[in-house]
Write a protein that binds this DNA or RNA. Sequence first.
DNA 1: TGTCTATTTTGCCAAATAACCAAATACATG
DNA 2: CATGTATTTGGTTATTTGGCAAAATAGACA
Lengths: 105, 105
Amino acid sequence: MKSKLKMKFLQQASAIKALSHPTRLLIVNMLSKRDICVCELTKAIGNDISTVSKHLSVLKNAGLVDINRKGNRIFYKLKCPCILEFMSCVAKILEISAKEKRRHI
Amino acid sequence: MKSKLKMKFLQQASAIKALSHPTRLLIVNMLSKRDICVCELTKAIGNDISTVSKHLSVLKNAGLVDINRKGNRIFYKLKCPCILEFMSCVAKILEISAKEKRRHI
DNA sequence: TGTCTATTTTGCCAAATAACCAAATACATG
DNA sequence: CATGTATTTGGTTATTTGGCAAAATAGACA
């Protein structure tokens, strides 16, 4: 049996993994402003709609977004705004790391 | 040419990707307490040492850890403690997501 | 220098991921 | 019910990832 700690990291890693793709970050960023349907996201992203739909299902399976049907369109919605906090953590880490790099040149 | 925004998300995604594996989260967790050498990490993790070394190089390439040789051992060091903030963001997201799930059962 | 220990690199394989296209599904409305 | 629009699913292909084992490298020290 896996230890409780390992289980926790496994769970955390899958949530993080869902956010480890630039397209999905773009999606999260757009959804942080308002709920958006697949076709509009697709226009902004530029990939095939099936590709975008698959990215959305990754986010949905990770429990990061919810769906909301209106007529024949499906709007995606960010589940916790706290994902934005997460994103600013990432930005901060990158900033610090870049600063470090500059210092060592 | 890629837009500046897309570049930013690409960069952020690679940092996040480096943290999207349970073994690497375990490593980060251990390194948050003190600097540790590869062999000790290997003992705690249970994989082959070459596998652990590869995970460490992923973290190093992402700019998340630094190395520090002492005698014939190499100690790994967490570069920004802010990664822990990041981890508590993740924990918070999961907590909220789990709470949501319970409510909908 | 030769040997020991610690670590990294390389080669290989299986599994996972991401992209596209085509086909299937879901719903709205004529 | 038939058609149109929005979305998802399945198949295919190319790339990446994660694991181990064996070989290579780096430094310590006799």
